[in-house]
Amino acid sequence: MPFKIGYRTLKTAVGAGLAVAIAQAMQLEFYGSAAIITVLCISVTRRDSLKVSWDRMVACMIGMAISGSLFEWIGYQPWTLAMIIIVFIPIVVKLNMNAGIATSSVIILHLYTVGGISTALIINELLLIVIGIGVALLMNLYMPNSDKALRHYHKEIEDHFKTILHELSVYLRYGESNWDGKEIPETVDLLQNGKNLAMRNIQNHILRYEDQYYYYFKMREKQFEIIERMMPYVSKMNHTVEQSETVANLLDELSKSVSPVNRVPYFLDRIKTMKEGFEEMPLPTSREEFEVRSALLYIMHELEEYLHIKDRLWNDADKKKL
């Protein structure tokens, strides 16, 4: 596997160097700690970076207040440090600011090392925190564009849906198929990866809480659950009837129409007409025919739900102007 440096590693390295350079230029004590704070605050997404930075800032203020008070009251001793940690960590955890524990510990140890509280030391620590967090936020302004990868997942998922629906139609039509089914697990992975990337894309926009791709992947995920429910019924049919050809044609046409375009009303009308036609046909003459026709009716019911899922999402997207 070739050696590769990711964008996050690169901006972490640049940020750490920049933070130290600024702190050193300002002649701050413990200037190397600015790099540690920067490294700790650089996150996967912009929104997460803001939250982590805020948590660390508040936790550091709490840590300085508690440690400064206890050190001056009890003394600069190892057991005082232990007592501070016993008091400090539960408070931060209660405030749901666990991310600030590591950063605050660095600041607390600075106070312990110096062995005395002064205005200059407090200003020094505040500047280290501001420099470390500020540089991290600056580095996190850059996030790679996910549009190309999201379009790739979109296309791959649609191609897989087309293949799966077509192969189901082949099995209904002939009662057998040479399909190896590899698209099934591949689709599961594509949906999960696409949804995760779309969620990360949302987290990289501070004021945006919705994403067209995320809704799309969620829709396909629900539709895929329906396809998985249909598959056992299709695979059990080794006998074909007249209606098998009709449902196979519908599946084949659906496979060719997998796209963001909303053709749901057309296909719902098709299914309604097919059901009416089924009702007018003579009753089954054998148990085998009855079972096949029952399975076909179930498949049509699931296909209706498959289409309604897309229709609901389409209406929601219009309302939200995605």
Rank of each mutant, 00 (worst) to 15 (best):
Y174T: 15
Y174L: 09
S177E: 07
N178D: 15
W179M: 05
D180G: 02
K182I: 07
I184A: 03
P185D: 12
E186H: 07
D189K: 14
L190Q: 13
L191G: 08
Q192I: 11
G194T: 11
G194F: 00
K195C: 08
K195Q: 13
N196F: 03
A198E: 08
Q203R: 14
H205W: 02
I206Q: 05
I206M: 10
I206D: 06
I206V: 14
R208G: 02
Y209G: 10
Y209N: 15
Y209K: 13
D211H: 15
Y213W: 10
Y214D: 03
Y214C: 07
Y215A: 08
F217G: 01
K218A: 12
M219D: 13
R220S: 04
R220D: 04
E221D: 06
K222L: 06
F224C: 01
E225A: 09
I227H: 12
I227R: 00
M230F: 03
M231N: 10
Y233G: 05
V234T: 08
K236N: 10
M237W: 02
E242Y: 09
E245S: 11
E245W: 05
L250A: 05
L251M: 14
D252K: 05
S257G: 01
V258K: 11
P260G: 00
P260N: 08
N262A: 10
P265S: 06
F267H: 00
D269S: 15
R270N: 09
K272E: 11
T273A: 08
T273R: 10
K275C: 00
P282R: 14
L283V: 06
P284H: 02
P284W: 04
T285P: 04
S286C: 02
